[in-house]
Design a protein around this nucleic acid. Structure first.
Lengths: 329, 329
DNA sequence: TTGAAAGCGCTAACAA
DNA sequence: TTGTTAGCGCTTTCAA
């Protein structure tokens, strides 16, 4: 049994109220009693019980984070930003790995509510009606990162359309005209549709005709990047540039190109998306469009905890030039 | 204000005790009242307050994890295992990113105690006397993953000495005799000293002389891998094999080799350590000694929550053969 | 400056 | 089968 405020009060010959005041820096005691109480606290090694505190002030100083997966560089970078900012503001973070499983997500939502977290951030996950209704009934602040929703929920993300448009334009400006895209999951309205549109618009506006086989649908993973790059190469042997909707897929593409003895960027240029830690470690180092993931994570906590902030934020993206894109001679 | 057990009791015309019994599946009520109460729960959307519950049963159903960093594949893989197993057992996990900062770690330890977590897992972090004393006084179960300590704390790890010995022997068996090592941080008694010893022992036993310049000390990072590979190449142009104490460093080595036009594995073979997700995505795919990180994470939770288990576990490592090591002709 | 007491939302004796 | 009641460890009136 650990020492409680009562024990401290008894040993210091004061009431629990006085101890509480001292603990919380409230006025109402003499320097003399303060010293006495602090001495007892020191001696007994007393530590306040945050659970009891939470019950009475309805403040748990903890927030919950829902992510599809923790073991990936995209999510963990966002998570790092979240943790950092939360810690700075005195909050703890509970992680919930949803595995893209709706049932699991719902039960996490409920658990977070039961534990009375003060806020929830949801990272790169589509928001179903179920989720939204649960969120709404809980009355807990929620912010979305790298995703958004038709329901009125604050979010933080980059402009996916524009980012894809810019990446494609970058390739075009480098002289490429046979450009393919390895996109994300077909039907994903957040991370696929806008990026595909950005890609096709950039091409059309440059007077380059787009055929459907120039767009290969993956699922953001390394493996799918390999698979779709292989397909692209077969369908379009003359291809000189590829825009990948994630760094993971871009790295997969790089692997295939390497295996087939196709030099990057000399024969084929590739540009990725995200600028996760994997990009700079790729061979060759990957040119990619950067999302400020860490900052977005930090920002999510600010948004969550400070209701005076505006409730949606488009972060700027930018192209990080490394060595996988070259000027086409 | 959310609905409480009292509200439910009132509306269902029963006492709070009865509602509590129904909520907790205890005996002591008729089917009829059960139905009535459940209907009210349904209608009101009542959700029990875990904070209040925690106060009374001294069970918060949450555990804390301390990691130096979340945005890296080593830690996040372990974390994924931890989260998975915790979730399976009905626990939530709070993450604490220590940034290798002692002060920060101490304050996390205190916070976790105040929040009355039921257990703490510490991932790949050296345990100082401060930490140990704090842990001991808290009386909360702790388990170490991928680290260990002279203090009596349960831990889960691989046999680093043997793993390094095996990796080196693997290179030797492939016909290599000019072998260098890129090790971790000098002085690290957990992840460096035993691995360096495993390396030198394997070499000596094979009758190969080891000179100190064959061992280049990095700090496990990609960047340090690049730097130390460069150094190794300068000091030992005839080198044909390199053992790296982390996949990150191995990938750094691969980059340097690529830049210098040295073919892997034809000219130089490299073997990594960890088998993080980065290994299979490397170009060429990295041969490495695997630690079962995910499993170790899961195991940590079992150890933590089930005191009947033995309190230390050496997990088996094994070599994953990919394409960065070849038989020397 | 200090203390007594009520109560946060729940569980668990104990009684009925 | 059900209810009453006493806390869990704390904060916060209110009164002294």
């Amino acid at each position: 049994m650990s020492v409680t405020i009562k024990d401290v009060a008894k040993q210091a010959n004061v009431s629990v109220a006085t101890v509480s005041r001292i603990l919380n820096n409230l006025p109402g005691y003499s320097e003399e009693t303060k010293r006495r109480v602090e001495k007892v606290i020191e001696e007994t090694g007393y530590q306040p019980n945050a659970v009891a505190r939470g019950l009475i002030n309805r403040k748990t100083k903890t927030i919950g984070v829902l992510v599809p997966n923790v073991a990936d560089l995209f999510a963990s970078e966002v998570l790092a930003g979240i943790e950092e900012q939360a810690h700075d503001l005195g909050y703890s973070v509970m992680i919930c790995k949803t595995d893209n499983d709706g049932k699991r997500t719902m039960s996490y939502l409920q658990m977070l509510y039961e534990k009375r977290v003060e806020g929830i951030v949801i990272v790169s996950e589509p928001i179903t009606l179920d989720y939204y209704q649960a969120i709404k009934s809980m009355q807990i602040p929620v912010v979305l990162v790298a995703t958004k929703s038709d329901y009125p929920l604050p979010f933080i993300k980059v402009n996916d359309y524009q980012a894809a448009y810019d990446a494609t334009t970058y390739l075009i400006k480098k002289g490429h005209s046979h450009i393919g895209m390895i996109s994300g999951t077909k039907g994903d309205e957040i991370a696929t549709t806008p990026r595909v549109k950005g890609f096709t618009d950039a091409l059309s506006e440059a007077g380059i005709q787009v055929t459907s086989t120039m767009i290969a649908y993956g699922d953001f993973s390394f493996k799918s990047g390999k698979k779709q790059m292989t397909k692209l190469l077969k369908d379009h042997p003359a291809i000189t540039g590829v825009f990948c909707a994630s760094d993971e897929m871009a790295v997969g593409a790089l692997s295939v190109l390497y295996e087939q003895g196709i030099k990057v960027p000399d024969h084929v240029s590739v540009i990725g998306y995200d600028n996760t830690a994997t990009a700079e470690k790729a061979i060759p180092p990957l040119t990619t469009v950067a999302q400020p993931l860490y900052e977005m994570g930090k920002s999510a906590i600010e948004l969550l905890l400070d209701s005076s902030k505006t409730d949606q934020k488009i972060y700027p993206h930018h192209i990080v030039e490394r060595h996988t894109v070259c000027l086409l001679k």
